[in-house]
């Protein structure tokens, strides 16, 4: 287990007077598969944005011994923290293999960069296997199905050699089978990575979460195992009741 804990203390993000994240404390142990749930506007994505350097925040976010707040995005990424976005952002004009190769390459020297890509790095080969995209390696990423783009993004995090994966609604818009496949993929990835998943889908959360944090209005409402969180009366009131409606629609 590559062990670095994510420790968030009193994290606060404010946009023009609106406090999106309001004093969040969060501890994610190495190897955890944590789900962040909460109604729209609870601050889940903003929390991830703050951790990855996309928005300014106050408080403290430590990954192992390193303080993350104040560092530029690409430096945080190089510390081993990777993320995906709600809408899959892959490089559509490049092939699956090129996408992965670029993700694997952030420490390459000038000489390697100026030469043509010949051999496939082993990490890329392994990610192609893990994500099941090996047969599509020479396809432009733009023609992939929605689910496959999400898997490619997760694969890109794997070759990037991150220790912590932050996934923003990885199964939104996926079919039932694709959700299953994604869940299995997360389980495999979770064996040697720390994974944080933002999710709306309760069934998906119940099936795959190891631990759950519920956010509401920028604050942590509840935290614990799936069963503990489900039993929490306050959570049921603000979220689960409403979410079951959403899940019914999806």
């Amino acid at each position: 287990m590559s062990g670095a804990a994510l420790t968030v203390r009193n994290l606060r993000v404010t946009f023009d007077g609106f406090t999106a994240v309001d004093g969040v404390d969060l501890d994610i142990a190495p190897g955890d598969l944590r789900f962040l749930i909460g109604p729209n506007g609870a601050g889940k994505t903003t929390l991830v944005d703050a951790v990855t350097g996309l928005v300014r925040a106050t408080g403290s976010v430590r990954f192992g011994d390193e303080e993350l707040l104040g560092r530029p995005v690409h430096r945080i990424a190089r510390l081993g923290i990777g993320r995906t976005f709600q809408t899959a952002t892959v490089f559509e004009q490049l092939t699956v293999e090129q996408n992965l190769d670029i993700a694997a390459g952030a420490g390459r020297g000038a000489w390697t960069m100026l030469r043509r890509r010949r051999a496939v790095p082993e990490r890329v080969e392994r990610a192609l296997e893990t994500t099941g995209l090996a047969d599509l390696r020479d396809r432009p990423a733009g023609v992939l199905a929605h689910g496959q783009k999400q898997w490619l993004e997760i694969g890109m995090l794997l070759v990037q050699d991150v220790r912590l994966l932050l996934l923003d609604e990885p199964v939104a818009g996926m079919s039932h089978e694709e959700r299953e496949a994604t869940g299995e993929l997360l389980r495999r990835v979770g064996e040697d990575h720390t994974v944080v998943v933002i999710e709306h889908d309760m069934d998906f959360m119940r099936a795959f979460a190891r631990s759950v944090t519920v956010l509401h209005a920028g604050k942590v409402l509840s935290e614990g195992s799936v069963a503990e969180v489900r039993a929490d009366a306050e959570v049921q009131e603000v979220y689960l009741g409403r979410a079951s409606v959403v899940a019914g629609e999806g």
Binding site: L144, A145, G147, W151, G173, M174, E177, E180, A181, L185
Partner: peptide, 13 residues
């Protein structure tokens, strides 16, 4: 391209 993934799925776009 959709035929070969881990799940042979209809895409839920």
């Amino acid at each position: 391209v959709r035929a070969a993934a881990p799940t042979t799925s209809a895409v839920a776009t």
